[in-house]
Design a protein around this nucleic acid. Sequence first.
DNA 1: AGGCTGCTGAAACAGTTGTTTCATCTAGCT
DNA 2: AGCTAGATGAAACAACTGTTTCAGCAGCCT
Lengths: 282, 282
Amino acid sequence: MTVVNIGQRIDGQYGELSPQEQRAADFILDHLSDLAVYNASELARLSGVSKATVSRLFRRLGFQDSAEVREHARALRSYGSPVGGPGASAGTPSRLAAHVEAEQENLRRMLVGVEDGRLDEASRLIASARHVLVIGMRNSYPLALHLREQLMQSRDRVTLGPVPGQSIGEDLAELGPRDAVVLFGFRRRAAGFAQLAQAIQRRGVPLVLIADSSARRHSDKATHWLECPIDSVSAFDSYAAAMSLVNLLATGAMGAHVRESRTRIAAITSAYEDLDELEVPW
Amino acid sequence: MTVVNIGQRIDGQYGELSPQEQRAADFILDHLSDLAVYNASELARLSGVSKATVSRLFRRLGFQDSAEVREHARALRSYGSPVGGPGASAGTPSRLAAHVEAEQENLRRMLVGVEDGRLDEASRLIASARHVLVIGMRNSYPLALHLREQLMQSRDRVTLGPVPGQSIGEDLAELGPRDAVVLFGFRRRAAGFAQLAQAIQRRGVPLVLIADSSARRHSDKATHWLECPIDSVSAFDSYAAAMSLVNLLATGAMGAHVRESRTRIAAITSAYEDLDELEVPW
DNA sequence: AGGCTGCTGAAACAGTTGTTTCATCTAGCT
DNA sequence: AGCTAGATGAAACAACTGTTTCAGCAGCCT
């Protein structure tokens, strides 16, 4: 069974629609991807017809009422691929597609939560801090590790904690207001996380906290709070969006850094060289 | 002038919000990118609070009424489209959008390169191997680390190499045709990569090779070749899609594994428990 | 011209949404 | 225990939304 979406329905009977109905239909077609955002009254107002006409149009298109259209529009909204009906979901391919769709949604959400300048501020902080300490435990550790490596491309004095056999306290003891800590705090945080965040705050060290929504309660201890979803259709959380955020942060820090450092050229060049570097012959 | 969006407003006073208000705020944060789609009643229903609470929350956040929130949500929604602000775009917002778009493209390509059964085969191999050795150096190391942690959720005998102070040769010496190696080989491979791959092949150990296109020349040494793009608009490669692939592989290995192991229930249960686990009190 | 048909928006109306009020409840305090 | 302050949802209500009715109107045929 193929789902016939509203755009197709309009195309199918555009000719039989009355002039005013066509006007409304035009507007709908022009805002298909946004449709869920408008209600029927607005549709009427924005397309310059009466509410009555919109109401009639929906009927004509085979919908029971405007609520049905709304519902339909929301189903459309999660587009990304005009994936087949839900029936096919049993098999492998759509399981993978669902996975990818979830990732894309995570990316979108990550972006929205970060694009209002937070990312830039955090980048600047990291770029200009005297010393940067990156902390991540358990599932957050690979992210911390990766961020540290990337930051090292454009600045020095970036350390990773905790180093085995040394407490974080020791790392922290050397930091002050002119330094910065990047703390990853994704779900399944180790015990002591709150104390750690608090200790950082008390020492007056600017803190960039990167975590999923479960860490909101700690966000007040951070000077910069970057929320990143890790939702997944599988039993494991997915850190793809987080990985993407790490890239953004490292990139941003490099960009911000170069403005105020004489190492600018060297930094950029070396990073780009890395990119283009030919494989070493073995 | 920075626009203070609703997400920031919530973060700014999350602590002062009442429990129910936090509940509603959580829902809003989780649907920031979608916010324009919901009206206040739905927000109330979906987040499990009364309409009154939602109404009060909006006030608390500095909005006149829900109409203002709606308007605000629509303004937010504008990302992704060429927002068009003439000079205003100053790079930042669309730079981020471009980044996310590149990530999504990587995800799609990763999926296409993997959904023809390769992933399933690799998963089954990993699930049924006697011993699994996961190897990743440099930029691939965080991925290897993460994969190892995830695989440990559903099976034992998963080791990570190389361990500092020990050569990979030693790890490898104990492996044979009934074991498996997962080798990450993303761009900027260390010298010796080719020899390593060859050594694995010669020992007859099944090899899952995960890397970007630059490693194609090594793909013939692998029994399972999973290509994953890491293209990025920035100076750094992005491992988001790779991270996503790791999730798929770990999930698949768990799924394949349970079919032939009595630890099935335990494995699934523990993984799901992790998911739902309440935060430990600190 | 007259009669017919279908399109249309104004208006009436029923249903829904969002705000405010109010009684109840809870936690903290004495 | 009694008291207080804040939190909360039910309910009342005002505002808005969407459907239906209805009268006007334009086009068309005879």
